[in-house]
């Protein structure tokens, strides 16, 4: 069977002028309006408007280079660390514009925490990894209070049972899956409102992945979660809504079951059925 591939410019011609699906929600925790992102002269995100619903999981999917991670990193200003990066448009956490020049990014990143692709525990003890955030943000008045936060965070991350008797050991001594749960415990220790996850399971085996996914499922009762994933099945399993990015544009957004059973835009359909990407 001959395979004829559509050249990139043909795919670009298929991009919709407006995002397909409902970009707005009734109870948004974060709102983004007409967001453009540039790396130097190159436009990485093109006019993206999207609401992030409170206490829901939204998956950002799309082929490599589509801008999903760039968009994710805009949500807590992680792109500030990249000198050539410029963000336009408006991104709000509740009613606060997070790109307001008066905003201090340190407390912002406590409110909008992040878990990265590769587990990155600090070279400190398991206890100190989790206690680090509450300490620098002054969330605990005394040792007992800090102990409680550490225990509660490790419990919520499903790790307490495995590390309770070795809290003084290095975080880097844990397995990959445990390290990633430690990073999640570290993120939730400062009681964030939103957790951003950038391919959090890509370095993990299927069992460790399943545990993280189960954790995401539980955490959505308390937190708003935005996850970038290359795994279609993962997006289908963990998220309430799914947003499909292509060439920097938000092509389609909708309920996860709708997107994976009956997507409306041709590009979404082609991507999720494995016809390109």
């Amino acid at each position: 069977m001959d395979i004829v591939r559509a050249p990139i410019e043909m795919e670009a011609s298929k991009l919709p002028s407006l995002t397909v699906g409902e970009v707005y929600v009734d109870t948004p925790r974060m709102t983004t309006r007409n967001v453009n992102v540039f790396y130097g002269d190159k436009m990485a995100i093109d006019n993206v408007t999207l609401d992030i619903a409170e206490k829901q999981v939204i998956s950002l999917i799309g082929p490599s280079g589509c801008g999903k991670s760039t968009f994710l990193r805009c949500l807590n200003r992680m792109n500030d660390t990249i000198e050539s990066c410029r963000v336009e448009g408006q991104i709000k956490l509740d009613d606060q514009n997070i790109y307001d020049p008066h905003i201090d990014v340190v407390p912002l990143r406590a409110r909008v925490g992040m878990v990265f692709q590769k587990p990155n525990p600090f070279p400190k003890s398991i206890y100190d990894n989790v206690a680090y955030g509450p300490r620098i943000h002054g969330l605990a008045g005394h040792k007992d209070e800090l102990d409680s936060i550490v225990e509660a965070s490790l419990r919520r991350a499903g790790l307490w049972g495995e590390v309770a008797n070795r809290l003084d050991q290095s975080g880097t001594s844990l397995s990959g899956g445990q390290q990633q749960r430690l990073c999640i415990a570290r993120a939730i220790a400062v009681s964030p409102e939103v957790i951003l996850m950038d391919e959090p399971c890509s370095a993990l085996d299927p069992i460790a992945t399943a545990r993280i996914e189960e954790l995401i499922f539980e955490l959505r009762e308390e937190f708003t979660i935005v996850i970038v994933t290359h795994s279609m099945q993962q997006a289908a399993r963990v998220s309430n809504r799914t947003a499909y990015f292509h060439l920097g544009r938000l092509v389609e957004v909708g309920g996860t079951s709708e997107i994976f059973t009956n997507p409306h835009h041709e590009l979404t359909n082609s991507y999720i059925t494995g016809r390109f990407g």
Binding site: V4, G274, R275
Partner: peptide, 17 residues
């Protein structure tokens, strides 16, 4: 919605069969 071939041609073959 028109369908182009899958990246995995074996998948196309399965569906065709």
């Amino acid at each position: 919605m028109e369908s182009s071939p899958h990246t995995s041609s074996a998948f196309d073959q399965d569906l065709y069969e």
